Amino acid sequence: MSLEKEQKINRLLNSQPFGVVYLSSWLTENGFSTQLLNRYKKSNWLYSIGTGAWMRVGEKPTYEGAVYALQQQTQSSIHLGGKTALSLLGKAHYLELSIQRIVLFGGSKEKLPAWFNKYDWGLKVNYCSSSFLPSKAGLQSFDQGNFSLQISNPIRALLECLYLSPKRQELVECYEIMEGLNNLRPKQVQELLEQCTSVKVKRLFLYMAEKSKHDWFKFINIDKIDMGKGKRSLVKDGVYIAKYSITIPKVLAEYE
């Protein structure tokens, strides 16, 4: 391989943080053809972790490095959300000694690439595509050491948990998380609730916030939040909360 080609790939690899995945689409945009990439592979510069994804030789892929690539190389809104974001921010109710599952959220038309789904990250990946919140509202930067990721802030993360409830997320655990969120900014809460399109999520969030007796709740203007019409029943034989027109599990209604 010519010195010029070696310098070209070296410059590109050095432009990205250590440990990130390199997407073929991004490499092509930067002037690296499939033929050239295969030559770099033979020359032991890169190795493939699946169709459309590469790693620098000597580095091992991580799910964080893969999410970074999606966010930075394709401008995807796919991000760590729900309980995963809450755990990273120290807001989860139960401390996990080791991460065995991650929760990813993305826009309603976004899908995880096949290489991401097929690769063994050593943990279970739960992905949810939705449009109940604007794709990039309520995200914050989270330092991963070599690079930063966009993850859900505590408000959005709890809203995502409620979106998954009650089938994929226990409501009592959501409430226990809510109890710990005593220093939220009312303006941020207001903005996300006004942008949220899920009636179930908004009613549950407000019910739990009021039940938790957080000081910030008194500053929320419910009149500006579209609460929808009609009743919502989350479980059979539950307890009906008239103020929010929702039927919730008895264990949640009686939780103190």
Score class of each variant (00 low, 15 high):
residue 64 E to N: 10
residue 191 E to G: 00
residue 98 S to C: 00
residue 220 I to F: 04
residue 15 S to Q: 14
residue 175 Y to I: 04
residue 75 Q to C: 00
residue 208 M to F: 05
residue 174 C to G: 12
residue 249 P to W: 05
residue 247 T to W: 06
residue 242 A to Y: 01
residue 182 N to F: 11
residue 59 E to I: 08
residue 41 K to Y: 02
residue 141 S to W: 08
residue 141 S to Y: 09
residue 63 Y to N: 05
residue 111 K to E: 04
residue 22 Y to T: 07
residue 149 L to C: 02
residue 72 Q to K: 15
residue 53 A to Q: 07
residue 55 M to Y: 09
residue 121 W to F: 07
residue 119 Y to E: 01
residue 45 W to C: 07
residue 208 M to T: 03
residue 81 G to M: 13
residue 230 G to F: 00
residue 12 L to I: 07
residue 137 A to D: 12
residue 166 P to K: 08
residue 199 V to D: 07
residue 245 S to M: 14
residue 237 D to V: 08
residue 175 Y to F: 15
residue 217 F to G: 01
residue 202 K to P: 00
residue 236 K to N: 15
residue 102 I to M: 07
residue 141 S to L: 12
residue 222 I to V: 13
residue 97 L to N: 09
residue 31 G to M: 11
residue 191 E to K: 14
residue 183 N to Y: 08
residue 126 N to K: 14
residue 94 Y to C: 00
residue 55 M to S: 06
residue 152 S to D: 10
residue 75 Q to P: 00
residue 157 A to W: 13
residue 245 S to Y: 03
residue 199 V to K: 15
residue 64 E to I: 02
residue 102 I to N: 02
residue 5 K to M: 01
residue 31 G to Y: 04
residue 105 F to T: 12
residue 75 Q to N: 14
residue 2 S to Q: 08
residue 172 V to Y: 13
residue 221 N to T: 11
residue 179 E to V: 07
residue 64 E to R: 15
residue 119 Y to Q: 02
residue 33 S to D: 06
residue 100 Q to L: 07
residue 40 Y to R: 00
residue 198 S to Q: 14
residue 80 L to V: 04
residue 40 Y to K: 04
residue 165 S to N: 11
residue 187 K to T: 14
residue 253 A to Q: 11
residue 122 G to V: 11
residue 20 V to Q: 06
residue 255 Y to K: 15
residue 94 Y to A: 07
residue 16 Q to F: 09
residue 158 L to C: 03
residue 93 H to C: 02
